[in-house]
């Protein structure tokens, strides 16, 4: 059986909120290392990969591999019933029809309990190759969100160009063009504002802004976002969570002119 207790319901609320507009029905794959999810969007352009390590839960118990097929709209409805600071426990039997969610208030004796019916989801699991990226950029997640939203007002696409000079986000559309360039920057007092650029070779790629803006819904999960780029491979946008847990998005590039 599965029993996984999260100190704060807020973490799962934010993760589900960040991905629910991109993917609808997902398997939450539970085993002794934690709870993982991999799902593509309907257009097969983007891939979501979430890992909540067992260390992110206390306690965590999962005796055998269980796939919980959950509709994220249903999960959102139930998670709205939890206060952000509630303790959340996920429970399921070994061959479950439902997943059980228990919300406990740390400050009162309230205990809420919900069951969500599970679905049989036949999901294609993709192998993501280990990649040595040519450019890795760590930057404030709020800054990345603002850049993507600002540029989307002008264009559907953004080119991300990373050289030793810095990283340039540029777009052009019917009304004109725009760009934002960032250089490496260290803020000793506020390290969450750091911009770090690790480059082994110059990279230039074009991506759909609609998807990037969607990924940025995860900004509340982490102060920093990591962008990993290599020419002609999907962009990795990573929000690191505590205990080595993560929420990653992969986006296929636009190719040719």
């Amino acid at each position: 059986m599965l029993e996984a207790r999260l100190e704060q319901a807020n973490l799962l609320k934010k993760v589900v909120d960040a991905i629910k507009d991109l993917v609808q029905d997902c398997n939450f794959d539970c085993n002794d290392s934690g709870i993982a999810l991999q799902a593509m969007d309907n257009s097969h352009v983007a891939l979501v990969s979430m890992m909540l390590k067992s260390e992110s839960f206390s306690p965590f118990r999962c005796d055998r591999n269980i796939a919980l097929g959950i509709n994220l709209t249903s999960l959102t409805k139930v998670l709205r019933c939890a206060a952000n600071e509630d303790i959340l426990t996920l429970k399921a039997e070994d061959a479950p029809d439902v997943v059980n969610l228990v919300f406990e208030s740390a400050e009162s004796d309230r205990l809420s309990e919900y069951d969500i019916k599970l679905m049989d989801i036949d999901q294609e699991h993709l192998g993501i190759p280990e990649t040595e990226y040519a450019a890795t950029i760590s930057m404030p997640s709020a800054e990345f969100q603002k850049i993507c939203r600002d540029l989307m007002a002008l264009s559907e696409s953004v080119s991300i160009e990373c050289t030793k000079e810095g990283v340039k986000f540029a777009c052009s559309g019917d009304i004109g063009s725009g760009s934002v360039t960032l250089r490496s920057h260290t803020n000793v007092e506020k390290p969450q504002l750091n911009v770090e650029i690790d480059l082994s070779e110059p990279v230039a790629l074009t991506f759909s802004l609609k998807y990037l803006v969607n990924f940025c819904k995860a900004s509340g999960l982490s102060e920093q976002v990591r962008l990993c780029l290599s020419n002609e491979v999907p962009l990795l946008v990573e929000y690191a969570l505590s205990n080595n847990s993560y929420l990653r998005f992969y986006l296929a590039p636009k190719i040719g002119d």
Partner: peptide, 14 residues
């Protein structure tokens, strides 16, 4: 602006 590629052409089933 280029043609949108498909994620499955980079990551294969496994």
């Amino acid at each position: 602006e280029g043609t949108q590629s498909n994620i499955t052409s980079f990551f294969h089933g496994g």
